[in-house]
């Protein structure tokens, strides 16, 4: 808890222009909002009409005095072995993630490769952002190619965290290195218990996920040393923040 508090405290004072590897409005905005307005995120305002918008319990789990990172929003549920071709099909890899315009565009194609068996679209037609801030998956999430476009596309679409049973190595590493999304591991198969559209909260400091729709709580595996790196906005931003590499003079 102490570790988390301290890491988030640093993020309060960070200059958003100096650290993020990619333009990352969603995560930055989100962390600010989470600190100032308890756990209510902009994403909840885009909730489908049938979902209750106010969840008092989520607000109370993160008292404003504790600057712990928490995420709140609707979840999109997928199965095992979601490979990078499903996260971002190869035909869109001509988009260069480090180019801000193309970064946004990449986000609009996130998870477009899922087979037709997924009836609910991750991103509505003509939209560039998803209304699902949290993706819940099974085993071996992000397997396949080393394309960094995969975590970037999810992040650019507005995803803040993926919760899966396990990850493919390169996807996990790319998620941390870019700081695009939190790749969190669950202790039980949450993907079989949550449904797309459920309202969930993640309390990072307590390593838990709460499904407000079902009222159930799940334990997550601690994110460990990767947490502060993602919090900082990626490996370069973290290295600068902690003095491992010099700050840019420019």
């Amino acid at each position: 808890m102490a570790l988390w508090s301290s890491s988030t405290t640093i993020s309060l004072s960070k200059n958003p222009n100096s650290s993020t590897t990619y333009p990352k409005p969603s995560l930055f905005f989100l962390s600010l909002v989470s600190l100032k307005l308890s756990s209510f995120k902009p994403l909840t305002s885009r909730a489908p009409p049938h979902q209750p918008l106010s969840i008092p319990r989520a607000a109370s789990t993160t008292p404003s005095t504790t600057p712990a990172t928490s995420f709140h929003g609707h979840c999109y549920v997928v199965g095992d072995n979601i490979d990078t071709d499903q996260i971002i099909p190869a035909e869109y890899l001509t988009l260069v993630p480090s180019n801000p315009n193309e970064y946004e565009k990449l986000g609009s194609y996130a998870l477009v490769g899922l087979p037709a068996t997924y009836k609910t679209r991750f991103i509505e037609p003509n939209q560039t952002k998803t209304k699902y801030a949290i993706v819940i998956g099974g085993d071996n999430f992000g397997c396949g190619s080393s394309r960094e476009h995969a975590p970037v596309a999810l992040g650019a679409a507005g995803v803040v965290a993926v919760v899966a049973d396990s990850y493919a190595r390169i996807f996990f590493r790319n998620s941390v290195a870019t700081g695009e999304i939190y790749p969190l591991e669950s202790e039980v198969r949450i993907c079989e218990e949550c449904k797309t559209g459920d309202l969930v909260s993640i309390e990072l400091a307590e390593s838990k996920l709460i499904n407000h729709t079902s009222g159930k709580e799940y334990k997550l595996k601690p994110i460990g040393d990767a947490g502060p790196v993602i919090e900082a906005g990626g490996i370069f931003a973290y290295a600068r923040k902690t003095g491992m590499i010099p700050s840019r003079t420019a």
């Binding site: 190619s145 080393s146 960094e148 790319n174 870019t178 990626g234």
Partner: peptide, 20 residues
Amino acid sequence: SHTCTAGAFGQFATGIGNTD
């Protein structure tokens, strides 16, 4: 990701992302 092909030569070879 298929950079690992070069392991055939007794080399350590692995795939990395853009940031790395």
